[in-house]
């Protein structure tokens, strides 16, 4: 059994070199951002000692920029800080709502979108929200950096495409236009403090007449990874996103879902509720895009 160790590199290069040298020493590493998943898992599921590499001291992981074409959200920014940024909230209300759903006020003070993504849980709330806004992961690699679409980042339950010598620096998101909006809803048995039983994100663009010209619908907690539901998107495009269209999208989500029965919900429950969430989130996104 090795030892626990802690490192807080202050640059991308230093962080990469810590990962590299630990790997060379045969030491296991673990990237630490908000720690709200990592520390819990380290104490219960996988207690094996490791070196914790805290990426919060790195400038790039703390960067938040809202450009004319692109938004960048550093991987170490806590959800609470994102929620306090009114401009960001106005541009990506669904994503920020999804981030805001992760745990309590206390958890919000630590948890990051990047961490939620890297934890790669099927139930991660921000993942469907990121997928629908076509977010791209910016990954620090020994060779420099590489980019991967969020939809391709998560490869399985708790698994993603990061190498042991890589880490997530942040997320790039195309800046939504005026007639575009997103929304995310999840279902939990309480009002707070739960893991999603099902989740649905919807991003829409409407033309001036209110007809949907493009749509992305993604669902979470109903399959090993988040699903982008093309059939649901297709059901919305070309419509006014009325009840019929939303019901069709909902049905497509329910059909696409392939959940499991566990302590948080049954297969039948999740399939039905993910449709309900799609319908409700779609309505919210429509109202936002048309206002």
């Amino acid at each position: 059994m090795g030892d626990y160790a802690y490192a807080a590199p202050t640059s991308l290069e230093e962080a990469l070199s810590v990962l590299e040298s630990q790997a060379n020493d045969g030491q296991r590493t673990q990237i630490l951002a908000g720690g709200t998943d990592v520390l819990v898992q380290m104490r219960s599921i996988d207690k094996e000692p490791r070196t914790l590499v805290d990426i919060k001291q790195i400038a790039e992981t703390n960067e938040l920029s809202i450009g004319a074409d692109e938004i960048f959200i550093g991987a170490a920014i806590p959800s609470a800080a994102l929620n306090e940024n009114d401009e960001l909230k106005g541009l990506l209300p669904g994503l920020i709502e999804a981030a805001d759903l992760i745990g309590s006020t206390q958890i919000q003070g630590r948890a990051t979108i990047g961490g939620n993504l890297c934890n790669s849980s099927p139930a991660g709330d921000t993942i469907p929200a990121l997928v629908v806004v076509s977010a791209v992961c910016v990954i620090a690699s020994p060779g420099g950096s590489r980019e991967v679409a969020v939809g391709d980042f998560v490869t399985g339950v708790g698994q993603n495409c990061l190498g042991s010598n890589e880490f997530l620096v942040g997320l790039k998101i195309p800046r939504p236009g005026n007639n575009s909006a997103d929304a995310y809803l999840r279902f939990i048995p309480r009002t707070e403090m739960d893991i999603a039983v099902a989740g649905a994100g919807v991003a829409l663009t409407l033309d001036d007449g209110g007809t949907c010209t493009s749509a992305r619908v993604a669902i979470g907690a109903v399959a090993p990874t988040v699903l982008l539901v093309e059939a649901a998107s297709a059901a919305l495009v070309g419509t006014k996103v009325d009840d019929d269209a939303l019901n069709a999208a909902a049905a497509a989500c329910s059909d696409a879902a392939s959940p499991i029965t566990d302590k948080r919900g049954t297969v039948e429950y999740r399939k039905k509720v993910v449709g309900v969430l799609c319908k409700r989130a779609g309505g919210i996104a429509r109202d936002r895009a048309s206002s």
């Binding site: 309480r190 009002t191 707070e192 403090m193 739960d194 893991i195 566990d262 302590k263 948080r264």
Partner: peptide, 16 residues
Amino acid sequence: MENAGFLDYRVPVASD
């Protein structure tokens, strides 16, 4: 027991 924690043993929270 599959839910041996306050995350999944759901006691009411203030907003409930």
